[in-house]
Design a binder for these strands. Sequence first.
DNA 1: ATTGATGCAGAATTCAATTCGGCCATTATC
DNA 2: GATAATGGCCGAATTGAATTCTGCATCAAT
Lengths: 179, 179
Amino acid sequence: MDEETDGIPQNRPAARDVDATDRKILGVLVDDATISYAELGDRVGLSPPAAHERVKRLRRSGAIRNTAAIIDPKAVRKPLLAFVHIDTKGWGKTPELMAISEHPEVEEIHSVAGDTCMLIKVRTEDTRALEGLLSRLYETPGVTSTRSYVVLSTYLERPVQPGITTEWPTPRHMAKPLY
Amino acid sequence: MDEETDGIPQNRPAARDVDATDRKILGVLVDDATISYAELGDRVGLSPPAAHERVKRLRRSGAIRNTAAIIDPKAVRKPLLAFVHIDTKGWGKTPELMAISEHPEVEEIHSVAGDTCMLIKVRTEDTRALEGLLSRLYETPGVTSTRSYVVLSTYLERPVQPGITTEWPTPRHMAKPLY
DNA sequence: ATTGATGCAGAATTCAATTCGGCCATTATC
DNA sequence: GATAATGGCCGAATTGAATTCTGCATCAAT
């Protein structure tokens, strides 16, 4: 695939225009990426090679980051999901981020706006393992406190939805998005 | 694939023993599910048909829930990520969950232990869209208040890690996990 | 009007997924 | 303890899809 300067993902070059057909393709592939290009072409109204070309382009442009197996956490004995607020003095320092991302239990690391804290998502085998992980996190330099939210049950978990509208219904009088 | 009684996922039948080889396979497929069975077999020390059999079994048992394209949120114009605490009177009622999951911006819905609240993950085009979504959520029956955490930047986002140890290093004197 | 580029379809080729038969090891059964 | 039965693997063979190639139509720019 592409090269990363570091462990932390860089911004992609451009991410060209994603038109209505591309969105349809994404919508299908998010649901099931094991289908043939013939099947994909049928569903979006293209010939197999044309569908193939589109998908190759979406991959190259980075719109499709990856094609991955989605695993049942229970099957690999990681049934316990928790979100953890980590208060830090001075957020976003790379060494601390690296230290946190070392733990394989950590699935996501986000910086929260307007607050000197990180919100991370962790998955462990049980509460004892979570406790151990939390104490190890607390030992990371810069971490001043943690507050964890254990998930009792999950009702919905789905990937990013590409949307199926032709173009985005954002009124023209609106300012550009944050990013 | 399998049948769901409802929009809400059911518990799988069994999820058989996942041995060390299975974990290796999962580890590879989480990284990249587009490789050939020959390649997969090479990496885990199996012939192509054997690797194929394993994967089929992992799919049937539900350990591999899905094989999906992972989309770059920016490419589909959903760069704004936020977590929202939703306080509810009486959590987990199905109609409310359904109402919340109707919104395509909602990616995850979790019930938090020890609190009458839900933690949901949403992705929108910009802050205005987020504001609109929040007000629509607030109109859902049972919702008493919301508190949102807008993500400034994301440093890590990865799928469930299957782990690569032969068996789990949980000491035998420990009690069984919660779930 | 002409040229160039882009995206598509259809046919042809290459390569991988899938099936099949037989072997070996482990486990259950008598 | 001997034997059947099961499960998992390999190697070869077959089927089927991915990929390449060629030509055509459309649109944009010159």
